[in-house]
Design a binder for these strands. Structure first.
Lengths: 212, 212
DNA sequence: AACATATTGTGAATAAATTCACAGCGTTAA
DNA sequence: TTAACGCTGTGAATTTATTCACAATATGTT
């Protein structure tokens, strides 16, 4: 059962789509339908579903509920998985807004900021700690993933602290390349690079389109 | 000169790294160094640089300034490229903070929100328009890319409007899969999926590590 | 002037990801 | 009962991406 990053990304997306498909009253789905909703191909969808060991029926396609459960069993932790958020500026607050309560198995369990004004305030049910508490709180709460939402200048220091505290996965929103040990999983969500990328492809579309 | 998405992503990252390398006083760089800074391999770096038609010297590696210029020539528009931002909640404001002024060829030229309280306020030098003005302002300002930073529920409607207004590239932060014409480039930056992905790989590292 | 060195550029090899294409299978219809 | 249908599961083919490996090269050294 070899799974690449892309596999996992697609499975996460499928689950999202399947849940909303179920919420509009459907009970089953075909690879063709799911592919079209996920901008993929039917063969890709079947391969991905095969990779988690689930089987559909040649007549009814995939049972929505069972498929969602199978994907969740594959993707999720059995227990609640706790997340730390560092940085309570606009970005950090928007992450809480978008995220909190959306996934049953994931929970923002601690929030850190270096601004003394924010320390000890409670945001959306999370108490805000000073950055110095990272080393103490993260092991105590048994948190293994963290979101970095601080300005570029502070990101590497925060990352180092997080790693020292035992974090294994980092979602980094700061526009810097972090230097970290190889056994830490890092997902970079650099906003500037993202805009630049879109700009490149938008331009490409525009100029290609006009060259006919 | 065939370039894939991954190529472009790496080139954007290289540029970022090269610029900061230059800022600490260096004048040239070897594929080996750049690879290590970008978590890549020397061969990959050379291939990527080859793909934009730049050549280094077997003795001095790559001239920093010239390489940065070559990459920029390849990636950037000649003229200023304008960006629209829709949604001025916490996320939208953090995008302005992180982004504005960072890239010389890209500029947030218009900001939209549906909250009447925000209309006509000026944020970081950008006047905020009502969403209804999208169809008017975007063609007038000749904007071809947009960032969606609204809640999930409003994202599809906003996207439809943007496409109608002539947008060619969308950076979507809302946690929904947008349904759009095939000639529009969409980059999804779904925060929930991102956290889920990190959670999966962090768990995998944790459990693999403990199985020795 | 000849040699040693370290790096680039790239054809060829390899690995990874995707797509093709079709056998096999329940179900429905006659 | 039998035939026809449309879908899944998957081996094989194809395409795409990455890495290998080495000739070519410019410089410093003796």
């Amino acid at each position: 059962m070899k799974t690449s990053e892309k596999n996992i990304e697609r499975l996460l997306l499928y689950r999202r789509i399947l849940i909303s498909f179920k919420n509009i009253g459907k009970t089953n789905i075909y690879s063709k339908q799911l592919a079209s909703l996920a901008d993929s191909t039917p063969a890709q969808v079947r391969r991905d579903i095969m990779s988690i060991g689930y089987s559909g029926s040649p007549v009814h396609g995939y049972d929505l509920e069972k498929l969602i459960d199978s994907i969740s069993e594959f993707l999720d932790s059995n227990n609640l998985q706790k997340v730390a958020l560092v940085g309570l500026g606009h970005l950090g607050r928007s992450i809480i807004d978008y995220f909190q309560g959306r996934r049953p198995k994931l929970m923002i369990a601690a929030v850190f900021d270096r601004d003394p004004d924010k320390i000890d305030r409670v945001m959306h049910g999370c108490r805000c700690y000073s950055n110095e508490k990272i080393l103490k709180v993260i092991p105590k709460e048994n948190i293994n993933i963290a979101i970095i939402a601080v300005p570029a200048s502070g990101a590497q220091d925060v990352a180092d602290l997080l790693v020292q505290a035992g974090i294994k996965g980092i979602l980094n929103y700061a526009p810097v390349k972090l230097t970290l040990p190889p056994d830490i999983y890092v997902e970079n969500r650099d906003m500037i690079l993202a805009v630049e990328k879109v700009a490149y492809f938008a331009r490409k579309i525009t100029t290609e389109g006009s060259s006919t």
